[in-house]
Amino acid sequence: MQTKRTIFRNLWLPYLLVAPQLAITLIFFLWPAGQAVWQSFLREDAFGLKTTFIGLGNYERLLDNPEYLNSLKVTAVFSISTATLAIVLALVLALAVDRMLRSARVYTTLLVWPYAVAPAIAGVLWWFIFNPTIGILPYLLDRVGYDWNHSLIKRDAMILVIIAAAWKQVSYNFLFFVAGLQAIPASMREAAAIDGAGPFKRFWSITLPLLSPTTFFLLVVNVVYTMFDTFPVIDAVTSGGPAQATNILVYKVYRDGFVGLNLGSSAAQSVILMAIVISLTVIQFRYIERRVTY
């Protein structure tokens, strides 16, 4: 690990300096994580009176549970759709801003502020717009013959949470794409133009390949975002329904733990989620190392 050539010599000061952070990490991060691992091997009876050690029983039960498998599928559909939608829209907007000279700054300001809106609020806003009785969009959809009702129709509920989650994420992706586009040397595109490549040809064979590191990075970040940070969107808009159609993994951990009081199963789900976050973090860090040498 890197350090300075010269350092301060002090026996107790460094420990004092790291102590606050380590104390919080131990008490609120490592201890609960350890508890989750331990509880995932236990089973509590219905009255919470007796706990028995059942080894991997909770995990086996989960993998046999159609509800859990459904939640896995729902999470995959939700994550991939949201990430794709947010990345594609952001790329289109970033390409357009990249053509602008004077107005780029104004457009950027007008496009980035949704980052600051809480996911829960984003959920409430879209829930209001899509409200089946008074919402504006169901009213318009009704005109063209589509009867929107996200509290009954599974597909409608999924579309709604995808839109609400993506709306907020576009601004983030947009900023990174703008930075990525600015890093592409103008000379490359000019050379291609001189060779006779039109704007679309240049996009496919120069801009897009050179943006691929940014795109990959955003894909990982967006998947992490949709898997964990969209909890409030789900809670505010659909509460996982209708009929489990939007019950993503992280929401199920919470429901099973706090509402269903099935602590063992909830803990096992927590551990599986931790494994997923850890692998995604590793992927992200590997990639960043590559970007440095790129």
Partner: peptide
Amino acid sequence: MLPVEVRIVPT
């Protein structure tokens, strides 16, 4: 690697 949503019940 341990966002609060993941370790919510034990925390």
